[in-house]
Each structure stands twice: as C-alpha cells, then as structure tokens.
Simulated scan of single mutants.
Amino acid sequence: MIGIDKIGFATPKYKLDLTDLALARQTDPEKYHSGLLLDEISIAPISEDIVTLAASSAKDILTKDDRESIDMVIVATETGIDQSKAAAVYVHHLLDIQPFARSFEVKEACYSATAALHYAKLHIEKSPESKVLVIASDIAKYGIASAGEPTQGAGSVAMLITSHPRILAFNDDNVAQTRDIMDFWRPNYSDVPMVDGLYSTKQYLDSLKTTWKEYQKRTGLTLEDFAAFCFHIPFPKLALKGLNKIMDRSLTPEKKEALSLAFDDSIRYSKQVGNIYTGSLYLSFLSLLETSSTLKAGDRIGFFSYGSGAVCEIFSGQLVDGYKDMLLANRQENLDKRTALSVEEYETLFYEKPQFDDKGDAAFSSYDKNAFYLSGMTNHQRQYKNTEEDA
C-alpha cells in the first residue's frame, strides 16, 4: 500500500477581498463571487516565492526521522525561479533533509504534481522503505486589470509519500491524456501567461469528459463508487462545471446530493486562496479532508488533474483508517489571520521588483512571513532565511 502519509499547506500572509477588487475594476462583485465562486485571493510579497512556500508547507509535517529517511524531493511548479537550478535543491537544504537524496523539479503547467506523485509511487514500489517528499508550489499572476486577475493566488501543498500511508492509499487506476494545444502558456520572456480563456475552459471540460469515459471503460467504475471527486481548480466555478459534466442521469438523487455536498467542502479553501496552479487539486483534497463531516475510512476519492498545453489524468485513492488524526484542526483560523490588503497596496506588491546594485545585490522590504522567507539577493544569488533564526 503506497500513498499520502502526511499533508501540509502554506499560503502568503496577505489576502485581497474580491469585493474590493471588483469595485476598483468597476465590476459587479457577484461576477467574482457567483460567477467564479471566489471570495478572496492570497497575495505574495517580494519576500515570498515558490521555495519559501514549499519549505514552509513541509516544515511542520516532517519529523527528524522523516528528514533522515526521505531520499527524494520533487517540487512541481510552473512558476520556477531559475532556468537551471531546481527549487527542490533549495528546499532540500532549508528542510535539512539528509544529503543522499535526489532533488529535482518537474513542469507541465498545473498537472506536474500528479506526475510527481506517480513517480514517487514507482520509486517506493522498488524501495519500500523510502519516503518521497512531493511539493506543489506556485504563485499565479496574470496582470493588473486583466481577465484573469481575480483568479490569481499563491500557495503550496506538501505531501509525504510512503509505503505505510496514514491518509490516502493510491489505487492502480491512473488514466492520462495528452493534447498539443495552446490554451495557456508563458514564454520565457513574459512575466505573465498568455491565455485563451474560453478555449481553455472548453479543453478542460472536454479533457475531463473523454478521460472519464476512458477511465470508466478501463476500470468498470462509476460515480456511484466514489464518496467524493476532487478537481483541478483554476477557479471553483469551472470545477463545479466539471462535476456536472460527469454526473449522469443514472445516479440516484442521494448520490448526487452527497457528491455535491462533498464538492462544496472541497472548494472551501480555494474560495479563499485562489488558483495555486500545481497545488490546486491537492488543496481541494485537503479542504475536503478537513471540512467534510461525512467522509470515513475506506471511502474512494476521485481526482481529476489538468495542466494546460495539455495533460490530464484521472485516478483514485482510498481513505485510510485514522486519517483524521493526521489533519490540522485550525486551518481556517490561520486563513482568517492573513492581513487584508487594499487594492492600492496589492498593486504596489504586484509591481515590486528587486532593485539591484552594480554587484547584483538587492535587499527586500520586510513583510509578514511564513517559516521561511527571501531576504534579498547577493551577487544574483537568492538569500533564504528561517524565521526561527531571527527570534
């Protein structure tokens, strides 16, 4: 049995209320709240990046034994900080993981964390005593007053994969699909992505429909076999359309209601954090685990992973007895503690860039921090610090 033994989450300490953004953009707030099913989005200052988020999301779930046993660190991201050095190498160091471990980064838009989990599973099948740390970390930025602006977000989900999981055991039922399309992409020379929004939405839903059909053909399973289904969430309303796309008339009214209630639980965190790209599917899973009152051990959970470009995958897992003991009780309290920004303050953070001197050095302003933060640059080298060292 291989699966998720521990799961952690980190998001920046700042948030933007989408009512405030809507009014500033002369838009009806209901366009965001009802049209996107979003209420707030997390905003990352210059001192927060995918490394600080990744390390912060993993820090509290790892014990000393974990750090000595982990022999692979994989960071999935589409907002990498370097074209050569993997974010996983920084994370490996910040978390003080034993040196004889592979550390690398994977990319395929929002899908790559799913590929990382599959790679981790294959590795542990060969080496059952191994532990693999898989982290999905991203900062979604589109542009001031752009169509995608209200769907921005930032966060990281860390998952410890082992042969004795205490949260979810993976099933061997993965079905993937690849399409060479241009629905969302970001060339190296652009700070923000290029998006064909309507086309991307159609591709997401059609990829789901066709992959689900193939999944049913190969496995013989139907939605009646699932207690809940988690989706990649560019914005929650699209995931809701996805659920409706695969719910057919053969489902009993009771099952439809149960799946709908589970879906509502699965989007609670995303409605407050926004799109976190590679981590959004797994934030959905975390939200489901921590807010649902009906799940039980043995329940089958479905997952739909989608990354523009495009690759998607459907797979499932079974909840493990005692999984509730592995969860955080005060997640909502932590989300509520984020500092609310005015639209003007958010725009200032959005445009802030490093100011380098002739030596390639730059110091950053001080902002509210998670466990790790980026203090500046020295000779164009990123300088990370642990907040415990500042105490």
Rank of each mutant, 00 (worst) to 15 (best):
Y204S: 08
L53Q: 00
L38K: 10
A22Q: 03
M182N: 13
Q383E: 13
I41K: 10
M326G: 13
D225L: 07
A55D: 07
Q332K: 08
R249Y: 07
L259I: 01
S207W: 03
F364E: 02
G376N: 10
E40G: 01
G274H: 03
K59D: 05
L160P: 05
N171F: 06
A115Q: 15
A297K: 12
L198I: 11
D299S: 13
G307Y: 12
A115P: 14
T219E: 02
T151V: 01
K337C: 01
I167C: 13
W212N: 04
L286I: 00
S56R: 08
I276E: 03
E108N: 12
L208Q: 04
Y351I: 14
A140K: 02
V195T: 11
A158W: 05
A340H: 02
T278K: 06
D390R: 07
A58L: 10
C230G: 05
E125Y: 13
K85P: 05
Y323D: 04
L23R: 08
F303Y: 15
D325I: 08
Y90Q: 09
P193E: 11
V134H: 00
H232I: 08
E224W: 00
S69E: 15
L122E: 15
A297N: 14
Y119F: 15
H92A: 14
A55P: 08
L349H: 12
A86S: 13
K64C: 06
R25D: 11
L281S: 08
C110M: 05
C230L: 03
L289C: 02
T178Y: 10
L62S: 15
K256E: 08
D358P: 12
K256G: 03
P150I: 00
E105M: 07
F226I: 01
K353L: 15
G197S: 09
